[in-house]
Design a protein around this nucleic acid. Sequence first.
RNA 1: GGUCGCGUGGCCGAGUGGCUAGGCACAGCUCUGCAAAAGCUGCUACUGCGGUUCGAAUCCGCACGCGACCUCCA
Length: 500
Amino acid sequence: MANAQDHPFQLTNTLSRKKEPFIPLNPPHVGLYVCGPTVYSDVHLGNVRSFLTFDVLVRWLRHIGYTVRYVRNITDVGHLVGDEDAGEDKIAKRARLEQLEPMEIVQKYTNGFHDVMRLFNILPPSIEPTATGHLIEQIDMIERIMANGYAYEVNGSVYFDVPKYAEKHAYGELSGRKIDELVANTRGTEGQDEKRSPLDFALWKKAEKGHLMHWPSPWGEGFPGWHLECSAMSTKYLGQTFDIHGGGMDLKFPHHECEIAQSVAADGHAPVRYWMHGNMLTVNGRKMAKSEGNGFTPEELISGNHKLLERGYSAMTVRFFMLQCHYASTLDFSNAAMQAAEKGLQRLMAANEVLKGFTAKTPSAPSSAAEGFDVEALANACHAAMNDDLNTPVMIAQLFEGVRAINGAKAGTVALSQADIDTLRKLYDAMLFAVLGLREEAGTKQDEGLDAGLMDVLLGLRADAKNRKDFATSDLIRDKLAALGITVKDTKEGVVWERS
RNA sequence: GGUCGCGUGGCCGAGUGGCUAGGCACAGCUCUGCAAAAGCUGCUACUGCGGUUCGAAUCCGCACGCGACCUCCA
């Protein structure tokens, strides 16, 4: 767009805690890495929010002309369930519970994850690497770290030496932590006596007897540490330093902090130029989390079959609901908010239909009092909002300003030129579908074969009744249809119906 | 306990020190056989107390309330 130079894309870098102009390393290419799911259970709505945030980022970067290589991993090596069950990983535990091979668990929940992503119209990444597919790279990285003296081996396990690293580097810079405080606040360390410091973290864990997932390594049979895969895979596909790394707020510490340490220790470079963290989805003010048990799955959301849900909501309603909040703010889920979002989305999409339906001529003879509308200013405002740290709520607010103009043009109170209409069409098409990633939902369209035919019959009968001024009959038909969830509207252009 | 963040109208949520988003709900009007939709109009808020400033929701301090992270989590 015209003033991309004047208003470059600004992104909050959680490393500096400031909004910074986004300048990629090798324009027009952008390297983006996002931490993906651990595939040991169903994804819930909180997970969806995070992936949605980065989906909008990718869509926007591409919209303003960048070529994005988007890498989002699948964590398919289980990691420790908790202190008590040290030795058993989440995937192995699940495999035992469901009596499946660990890789069946991985495949099952990977498939489920992909289904959910499609449901919410979240674009697939360019590369979706798996931890188990990159053991060679991970082992190689451990060797580089050891060669540089930042890791040590104990009984077939390898640990990262955090105090050693902190002598020369800023461990804790991302999450704002200080080494002394971390040491002072460390919780129980039993079962971790192999570590020299409680802050040290595993790069490689020796597999105990009976452990299902393990691979050979220079240190014996074992499996990689949780933080390592992201470092190894981002380095492989995006280079030792790349543009943007994203993930949920809850991954900042220790996960992302460890990633920085691993990369610096292995290759001597800070891996990431811009760190980006999405905030949490909350329910009644508390974080939605697997461990809190307050999450619901997308299936439950759509069916409404969950005690927190008054009724079901469509995937696009949820998407729109989330986009009406800035990604860096917490967002609280509530039925009232969902219903408000649903109405708003309907109005927005309906206005887009009105816009598409305008004929070549001016939509409706504007009255002499019709006001003009600055379409250019609207387009610029949308662009500026997105460039301002992906401010989707402000961008959506602008689209609603446009809705008034579109509906006003139809009503004859706003004058739009053909050029205005063309600009608006392009703008709405781009913002609604390409950038916000909304899509028309099935079931609201009027041209669906049998349904459409049946409706034509009923509405034909109703029109006859109306012509005879038999309003009792015409209203009866409308009321009965309303009871079935179909709204009939008599507009100037004719009768329209839609499912609610 | 440590670190970080938040507290905006009936609800959800933006907000760069002055021009006081937007959505939903609500009320009135227009259109309409009625309804729906749409348009117009109305509804002016920033947890509390101090301070800085000509001027603060926005900056600073204190208090209260809430949350996140510190342990697997997006």
